Simulated scan of single mutants.
Amino acid sequence: MKITEIECLVIDGEYPYVIIETDEGITGIGECFRRSPWVTKSAVDTIFRDAILSVDPSNYEEIWNLLYNIASTCGPYGSLLTAISGIDTAIWDINLKREGVPLHKKLGKKIKNSIPIYASSMKRDMSPEEEADRASFFYEEGFLFYKMHSAYPEEVDSPRDKTLKTVEAIRNKLDNNIEIMVDVNGGYSAKKAIEVGHVLEKFEVFQFEQPVHVTDLEGLKRVTESLSIPIASGECCYTVQDFKNLIEKGKPDILQPDVIKTGGITEFRKIISFLNKKEIMIHNTQPLISTAIHLHFLSINNSIKLPLEYNIEQNSLIDNPITKNSLNIQSGNILVPDDNSFGLDFDISIMKKRAKII
């Protein structure tokens, strides 16, 4: 089998997907991280495409290493590696379809039929009372964990920050019936993070995520060592080596890999293996392929106990589907798909109609 064509479609001008065609008529579909979609598309179309045309897609590892080495001349992190994620997941899709098996069967033995998820609120423009009402709504829907984003990462130690008032409002509304997660996306200095963290301890928050900038590993270590609540980080780590560095220098309590940031399944599998005895909470903000892949990984792993992130914001891929089926959410859990590959059946004709160009 050989790769005959590869293209990146930016669906609705926002979501980059990679489509790879083969000479056996099997088409693979992969997903890239949604930020900087046009940079991602340019990387797929102009940097990586020619390198893998006519290549046998069964050689996962060789293709991943080839793409990573090509990217190293002008990266390889950020949009280049998330572009590789789209290619790698599409290649896995081809091979899983060819074998006629779901991803979890390729990874190991499925031991979980459903995975708990937490409601991840991305809005930063709500009042503390509005956020508390939103948390209450999802609690009534069966969610036992709620993550809020109320700081301003573009403005470190911003006076507009509503984190503590929002946590207080949620506690007043729901008491301790729901676990609260606080993600400030690196919006604090280490000093401010420790000050806020001590108040969060009193509210018994479940975790405090990315309290300082991702490059400030010394500051992260200070925060972790100063607080009793779990500190989470890792969504901006791309490789096994990145996680080694994060653990050695930043020492967070919870690690957060994301398959569409790590260059796809090939590297993600190595990361999960490396983090084997660490506390893992998978980072997940996109509703289709990345969510499905994470479900498959979690279904075979009994050591990962923490819930999977689920972005609760409105999304055109859900409101106007590009798939013929959907993931099944029930009372704060998602059922693990058993259909071939990732368990999603994409309508490529719809995808192409909704692909934007610039």
Rank of each mutant, 00 (worst) to 15 (best):
G13H: 06
K162G: 02
Y68Q: 02
A151F: 10
R98L: 00
M148P: 00
K105Q: 13
I180N: 05
I300T: 15
P230L: 01
P116G: 03
E141C: 07
S120V: 03
K191V: 10
L9Y: 09
A90M: 11
I293Q: 09
L317F: 02
G25Y: 01
V199S: 12
Q330L: 15
P57Y: 13
C8W: 02
E309S: 08
L164M: 08
I348Q: 11
K202V: 01
P257G: 05
G75Y: 07
I111S: 06
K106S: 14
T285R: 12
S299W: 09
P76M: 07
F145T: 06
S58Y: 07
V199L: 12
G186R: 07
I115S: 05
L295Y: 08
D175N: 07
S349D: 08
R354N: 15
L327P: 13
A190Q: 07
D339V: 04
N284M: 10
N315L: 00
F274V: 14
K109T: 13
D175V: 01
T82S: 11
I272N: 11
A232Y: 02
I293L: 12
M122N: 08
G234F: 04
I247H: 03
D258E: 14
Q330T: 11
C74F: 14
I358T: 15
I280L: 04
D183K: 04
K278L: 07
I271H: 12
I6K: 00
I271W: 14
Q210D: 15
K305A: 10
I26A: 13
K244P: 10
E235W: 11
N311A: 05
P76N: 09
F297M: 06
I70T: 05
E209Y: 00
W38R: 09
G28L: 05
I312N: 01
S290K: 07
D258Q: 14
I170E: 10
G75D: 11
Y118E: 10
F143K: 04
I260C: 11
S189M: 01
F274P: 08
C236D: 15
V156G: 03
P37K: 03
K192I: 04
E129D: 10
T163R: 01
T4D: 08
F137R: 05
I63T: 15
L103E: 12
I170K: 02
I260W: 09
I47P: 01
D183L: 00
K249A: 05
E140V: 00
N95W: 04
D12Y: 15
R134F: 03
V184K: 02
P102M: 12
E235R: 09
I70G: 06
T46A: 02
W92D: 13
L255T: 10
E218H: 06
L96D: 14
T323P: 14
L80F: 13
D339Q: 13
Y118L: 02
D216S: 06
I329D: 11
H149Y: 12
D339G: 10
I271L: 13
K192T: 13
I26Q: 10
S150C: 15
G13I: 00
D339N: 14
V101K: 15
F143E: 08
L298W: 06
A90C: 04
E267Q: 15
N245L: 14
Q314V: 06
D56Y: 04
F48D: 11
Y146M: 01
V44E: 07
